[in-house]
């Protein structure tokens, strides 16, 4: 039984048919499939990479936002602080100035008052002197009619003077 002897006719057809099948599949079949699978692999890889990058960027953006927010907050705190400081300083300065001014005014006042007082005292003195002189004149004019009394007066005056100069 020719089980182990290859039949030439079948051999011929097998070569023809397998040749055609091989040609068709090797040209239009498998390379297309393999290429598409490879392309898909590349595409998936690229997509994954892009997704990873996007993720990283998102995280970056978040961090950036957080950073900006923190910075803003710090800035705010700083500005508030400096504003407070400025305010306090202005107030303190104003107070100082006001005090100084007050003191100065007070001093001036005092000086003026002093001057006024002195001039008033001087005035009073002069007036008193004039009045005294006038009174003395009048007294003297009435009293100096008598020589004795003149002498007494003079001596009393001299005594007084001596006494006061002591």
């Amino acid at each position: 039984m020719g089980l182990l002897t290859p039949d030439p006719g079948l051999l011929f057809w097998m070569v023809v048919v397998f040749g055609i099948v091989f040609f068709l599949l090797a040209k239009f079949g498998f390379p297309v499939i393999i290429k598409m699978v490879d392309d898909r692999k590349t595409y998936i890889d690229n997509s994954l990479k892009a997704a990873r990058e996007a993720n990283a960027q998102l995280a970056n953006v978040k961090a950036e936002g957080e950073k900006i927010l923190t910075q803003a907050r710090e800035e705010q705190a700083r500005i508030l602080k400096s504003a407070t400081e400025t305010r306090d300083k202005i107030i303190r300065d104003a107070q100082d100035k006001a005090r100084l001014e007050g003191e100065r005014l007070m001093e001036e006042m005092k000086k003026q008052i002093e001057t006024e007082k002195e001039s008033a005292i001087r005035d009073i003195r002069r007036q008193v002197a004039l009045i005294s002189v006038g009174v003395a004149e009048k007294v003297i004019r009435t009293k100096l009619a008598d020589g004795k009394e003149q002498t007494e007066l003079i001596s009393r005056l001299v005594d007084e003077m001596v006494e006061s100069s002591k």
Binding site: D7, P8, W13
Partner: peptide, 15 residues
């Protein structure tokens, strides 16, 4: 003999 035998036809159909 290059007849289209049963195996040849099956071969063609399967291919």
């Amino acid at each position: 003999d290059i007849s289209i035998t049963k195996n040849v036809l099956a071969l063609i159909i399967n291919s």
